[in-house]
Amino acid sequence: MSKIMEGLLYSESHEWVKVEDGLAVIGVSDFAQKEMGEITYVDMPEVDDEIGKGETFGALESVKAASDLYSPVSGVVVEVNEELQDAPEKVNEDAFENWIIKVRMNDEGELADLMDAAAYKAMIGE
């Protein structure tokens, strides 16, 4: 049974979003990290990259699998979590603590398309 954090918004592709100082902080859910197993690499965009809602902005890699990351919102990347470069296992340790990117959103209205914790919990059937 995976952890689900209250107060965050979730996408169908298992990313979570937290709005902080007007920025969208984006990570992956505990469910997603469990599905991947031991994460060996987090592929991340560069600061200033523009990303669209639903577009891939990176990927999680394990020894035998790779899973693309899809942006739940559109905007410009303002920060990436450099710590994950050398320590991808942090996503396994705590997927909610270890965010992946921060995005300046083009349209906060896009957040309305995301699920709350209860809806996400229902989706993953736990």
Partner: peptide, 13 residues
């Protein structure tokens, strides 16, 4: 190693 780049895992990507 680093096989997640390769065709047998990433297929068209």
């Amino acid at each position: 190693t680093l096989q997640a780049r390769e065709q047998h895992i990433r297929r068209e990507k």
